[in-house]
Design a protein around this nucleic acid. Structure first.
Length: 136
DNA sequence: GCCAACGTTGGC
DNA sequence: GCCAACGTTGGC
């Protein structure tokens, strides 16, 4: 299967990029939305994942990578929910703000803008690369 | 702090 | 199976 590109959102007050860097690795728990869950299940080891700060910051701050594919969420006994493991790869030199993304016509249709409540979403390679480029 | 969007729940 | 009520998310 082709490599996927992804974007995950988190409120920095709950789990920030800096926190991920400090931890070195984390499992991405707390997803309780079927669409987001299905996206988690689509992740493969090695897939790059953009890390977005919602509510505070409103910017893409770094690039992480899938270290382990979907498995039962250890924070619940409910077997409907899964997590993946993420490791930090590198911070963006310049965070890419939501405003900046909105200003790019080619990025008008990404789920981040179209579906503001979705917390785990796929990006196509072009969109992923465009955001990374804006941040470097 | 407000409100729009949207997913989930529960009564019928 | 429909739909109103409710809860949560996230931008502003």
């Amino acid at each position: 299967m082709a490599k996927g590109h992804w974007l995950v959102k988190q409120e920095p007050t709950k789990y920030s990029w800096a926190h991920l860097v400090r931890d070195g690795r984390t499992y991405w728990d707390g997803v309780r939305n079927y669409q987001a869950r299905n996206n988690l299940k689509g992740m493969k080891v090695g897939d790059p994942v953009l890390f977005y700060h919602s509510v505070e910051g409103l910017e893409v701050v770094g690039i992480a990578e899938v270290a382990r594919e979907a498995y039962q969420d250890p924070s619940t006994a409910d077997e409907r929910w899964v997590v993946v493991d993420l490791v930090p790869v590198k911070a963006l030199k310049k965070p890419v703000t939501l405003d900046a993304i909105k200003g790019v016509p080619a990025l008008k249709d990404i789920p981040l803008l179209r579906q503001s409540r979705l917390s785990v979403m796929p990006l196509d390679k072009a969109a992923f690369d465009a955001i990374v480029k804006m941040g470097s």
